Simulated scan of single mutants.
Amino acid sequence: MGRPESPVDYTVREVGEHAQFLRDARTRAGITYAEMAKTSQWSAASFKRAASGKTLPAQTLALGYLRACGVGAGSGLLLRWTSLHARAAVSLAVRARQAATGVRPHPQFVRDRADLSGALRDAYAAAGRPSFRAMALMAGGWRLPRSTAHSIVSARSLPGCLDQYIAFLTSCGVGVEQLPPWFAAWHKVMGEPGPGEVRAYGSSHWKLRTQANLAYCVWLAGRSGEAPAPLIAV
């Protein structure tokens, strides 16, 4: 028996989720990378690297991986994979643009609605001004409609709730670990949101839902000195 596979790298969350999806497909098929390579043009090393989470594999490689695991063209898993791969590609593009712009938002200096609007627009600029379609894809579509993203970026409105606020920030490449000062800015301007305002996210975003919820609850607990208790059952 070979050495156990290293844990998936979640440095870029969407790439990690894509890698885990590939690993799950192989687990269901009950085959090794070597066995997969025998029925494909790709090597076992290529398949293993594709499922590492360290990089996003090309579509042709990922499709070859899934076919080697018995995932056919009409499978619902293939539709799920298409969405995961697209979201991971958008996330990497946003991060690349973010690194190139040099713009940095400062939510810690927010005092009022105008400041919060400006900070959100800075987050959008720091992300390289991604398309509203890309933002909706990153956020999960229904959580951040394109028209809503456009309205926020145009300074015509603020997010309607905490969940939409987090969705906007996520679509701009703001990581969960960067959310606490944004939570503070939201509370300062919008007041204390009730538990019902942190809506449960869609099942396809379970990892973000858990992490964002935990980050928010830990932040709230830190303000009150209480032990964190999730506002949403996940």
Rank of each mutant, 00 (worst) to 15 (best):
A119G: 02
S83I: 02
R121F: 03
G16C: 00
L66T: 04
A73W: 04
S91I: 01
D112Q: 01
T82S: 11
L77R: 03
H85D: 02
L78G: 06
L61K: 14
F21I: 04
V90G: 02
R87V: 00
D122F: 02
A89F: 04
V90M: 01
G74F: 09
L22R: 03
T101M: 10
D24N: 07
K48Q: 15
A100R: 12
R95T: 07
E35V: 14
G74V: 09
L92N: 10
L56A: 14
S75R: 05
V103H: 03
G53Q: 00
G16K: 00
R67G: 08
A37R: 11
A58W: 09
A25C: 14
H106T: 11
P107W: 11
Q108L: 08
V94D: 01
W42I: 13
D122V: 03
G102T: 04
S52H: 08
V94R: 00
F21P: 03
R28H: 12
R87W: 00
A99T: 13
A45H: 13
P107I: 11
R28M: 13
G30D: 08
D112P: 02
R26F: 10
A68F: 12
A86H: 01
R23W: 05
T27K: 13
A99Q: 14
G102N: 03
A86N: 06
I31E: 08
E17Y: 00
V110P: 00
V15R: 00
V71I: 15
K54I: 10
R113K: 15
Y65A: 07
Y33F: 15
V110W: 07
